[in-house]
Simulated assay, not measured.
Amino acid sequence: MSQKQPLLITTGDPAGIGMDVVLLLAEAGKLQDFARPIWVTADAKAMQTRADQLIAAGVLKNCPTWQSVALTSSLITDIDSMDFNTANNAFLLLDIPCAEPVLAGRIDTKNAAMVAKQLEIAHQLAVSETVAAIVTGPLQKSALIDADIKLLDGTMFSGHTEFFMQQSGCEKVVMMLANQVMKVALVTTHLALRDVPAAITVDNVRQTVQIVLDDMQSKFGIANPCILVCGLNPHAGEGGHLGMEEIEIINPVLQEFIAAGVNVSEAMPADTLFTSRHLNKCDAVIAMYHDQGLPVLKSHGFGDTVNLTLGLPYIRTSVDHGTALDLAGGGGASATSLYQALVMANEMANKSLSR
């Protein structure tokens, strides 16, 4: 095994394009760009079938080579005893069999347990520091919900973020999206706009700022990051004339951090914060809600955007697209987002203070 820890890709739902984009990068030789082994979770038979389909469709010229490992119940023991041939193989495939044969583009809830198993293995390998980072491919949340896959707390499966948060025993994590222009973290995520103000609490703002600060230092290697924070209301409340959240909630929290020597702004109007004059001087932006920050970020590079989960005890990045069932096995899928997610994971692993 290489001295550097591997990057682990979970391919997500086998009916989607997760395997396609891995194969595209493998054939192009792009998985060798990171000076780390690349490990992939997938069904070995489905991976070979998908490669054959892409060759038949003229998407792949040649089938990439990989080394397949069938896992037993003792995962870490298996991994520690493996001899991965990095010279002749594009990636190491951790074989997680599906319950039913995989048909490209057709979701089968009987294979939902395999999708969940990928995430369990990824968490185990990451928390044990066997791998340097997890890079997640797209899954179909509805398939896991329909298959009655539950989170640790017994609630329905609601996504990668909640799964890894609960597996890691974290009270809160922060969603951040990043590209080459900016990094934007969110205080609230997928809420109806009418529900956002009630979720802007002292604790929520304080925890978000602390998690962003901690991860910018520990995972991005920035000792004194500059963090800019959006207000909730137009003009950051206009001195209370357009809302009191900045005066009563947001700024008192930010002033605590400022008094402690943190390089963070008070609440700023979002319509002027997202300008080059401010962005050129900051390391991360914290937005109060989803569509306050993410449309601006994605306008600067939709295909190059990476989803990150901050606050976990390990690095997790993700593609910014879904399963794209209509493209699976037939061509048209782009591997750009997966490549950028690998780039981000590798850079974070290289800069991480824990490695």
Rank of each mutant, 00 (worst) to 15 (best):
A113Y: 08
L125F: 06
I55C: 04
N89D: 01
A57E: 14
L119T: 08
G58E: 06
A57I: 09
A104S: 09
N85W: 03
E120F: 10
A113C: 08
I121Q: 10
A46I: 07
P97Y: 04
V115C: 09
R106A: 06
N85F: 01
C63Q: 13
V59T: 15
F91H: 09
L125M: 12
A126F: 03
A132M: 08
A56V: 02
L71N: 07
Q67I: 12
L103P: 03
P64E: 06
P97N: 03
L54K: 09
I79A: 02
A132V: 05
A70C: 05
A42L: 14
N85G: 02
A126D: 02
V69N: 10
H123L: 04
S68A: 15
W66S: 06
A90P: 12
V69Y: 15
D95L: 00
L103K: 14
E129R: 10
V115M: 06
M82D: 02
T77L: 00
L119Y: 12
V127P: 07
S74G: 06
Q53L: 05
C63E: 09
L125T: 13
F84H: 04
L125S: 13
Q118E: 01
I96R: 05
E100W: 04
T130G: 05
H123P: 05
N88A: 15
A56N: 12
L119H: 14
S73L: 13
A104N: 03
T65R: 14
I121S: 07
T49C: 07
T41V: 14
V59D: 07
L60H: 03
D83P: 02
T41R: 13
S74W: 08
V59K: 15
A46F: 03
A42M: 12
Q48A: 05
S74V: 12
S81C: 06
A132R: 11
L103V: 15
A113N: 11
L71W: 04
G58N: 09
T49H: 11
A112D: 07
K45E: 15
C98L: 03
N89S: 03
H123Y: 13
V102N: 11
A113M: 10
I134K: 15
M114K: 09
L94E: 07
T49M: 09
T77R: 00
A70S: 14
A104H: 04
S128Y: 05
C98R: 09
V59C: 13
V127E: 15
